[in-house]
Nucleic acid binder design. Structure first.
Lengths: 192, 192
DNA sequence: CTCCGATGTATCAACTCGATACATCGGAGT
DNA sequence: ACTCCGATGTATCGAGTTGATACATCGGAG
């Protein structure tokens, strides 16, 4: 269950912490969390759940026979005490693994359950990760600008601006974190 | 060689069309093209090259013994006539497969070799693909806004704005395509 | 003169995806 | 009432991909 599934495990722990879920619903929520890119399939989810069960992080409740006799079979998963403990461990982890591309989104999604100092550490780590990437792109772009055709240049430029936008976003978030919890209304809240 | 490697094949064809290359350099350029995300590994590239060789799309030139005796072994690949033909076929393809997430970037990178009408078709296809995605996100966001905590909401919002930015970018490109080939200076070109 | 990182080709176990199979549910249309 | 069909639901498999690793040479820094 390595590679991305480390991320998948965290997503499952975090979602099941909010409420017990069955596989189908769990997958939908995981994919909503991860975004349209990076969506996962059952071929990842089910083996992951199986391993987490075996590891004692989850408990499975097969709610077939219920009131009314007819309910279709679903397997509802929930966290065990060990699972909750594991979740806390993962949320306390503020190292580089937290701000890489694969994991940052999930870590951020569970910031509400994360300590303020860890939040700040992750946001700053993510920012320097992106700035590092920006340096590399601007460097390469400076060296090759003349040799590239219009479209390739446009594509590189757009990629660069995506990174810069992401950095600005992180700057805002870091600033907000630093002055306590100031609300930041993005969309005008319907002034009616 | 299916799935992403359809994309990989196109990237290889396009890059080798510019100049013959060996595997190591080819990989670097493919990854520069695809961006930091979506980078590929040798475990994808080498099998792909092998298949393309077998299919007669590429010719391999092992430049070991050369003038000076000492040159290290490198295998230089170049396009055959069949390979060039295949590249033209691929570049003429303007269907849905061209504007999905996996392939759009590569198709765009080779727009300089693509007919104007195909370019426009791909850009518009990509735009409606993204608008469709935007609808889905705004819908889900409208339904669940109250139930989400601050950070989850912020993450969704950021994702949504990414899509919207992408759509604006495409709008600009489409407009530019429509009035012939007007230059669009993004970064002020060093007015010194 | 040696160490070390970049260049260069290549493979492998572990992991992931898209497709597929199978089955039930609720609603829309006739 | 009946049938169709898409959403819900669990599960597996072949094919493709990754990150690690192996092995070897090159050029430069100390």
């Amino acid at each position: 269950m390595s590679k991305r599934s480390g991320v998948l495990e965290l997503a499952v722990l975090g979602l099941l912490h909010e409420s017990p879920l069955h596989g189908y619903e769990l997958r939908k929520r995981v994919n909503a969390l991860l975004g349209p890119l990076r969506a996962i399939s059952y071929g990842s989810l089910y083996p992951c759940l199986k391993e987490m069960l075996a590891a004692g992080l989850l408990a499975a409740d097969d709610s077939a026979t219920d009131a009314g006799a007819g309910r279709r079979s679903r397997i509802v998963y929930k966290l065990t005490a060990e699972g909750k403990e594991r979740l806390q461990e993962q949320l306390a982890e503020g190292g580089p693994s937290a701000w890489e591309d694969e994991s940052f989104g999930v870590r951020f999604a569970f910031f509400a359950q994360t300590d303020a100092d860890v939040r700040l550490k992750i946001l700053e780590g993510r920012r320097s990760r992106l700035e590092e990437r920006r340096e590399k792109v601007t460097g390469a772009l400076g060296r090759t600008r003349e040799k590239l055709d219009r479209y390739t240049l446009e594509l590189q430029q757009h990629g660069l601006e995506s990174v810069e936008r992401e950095v600005r976003w992180l700057n805002e978030l870091i600033a907000t974190e630093r002055n306590g919890v100031a609300a930041r209304p993005r969309r005008a809240p319907k002034t009616s």
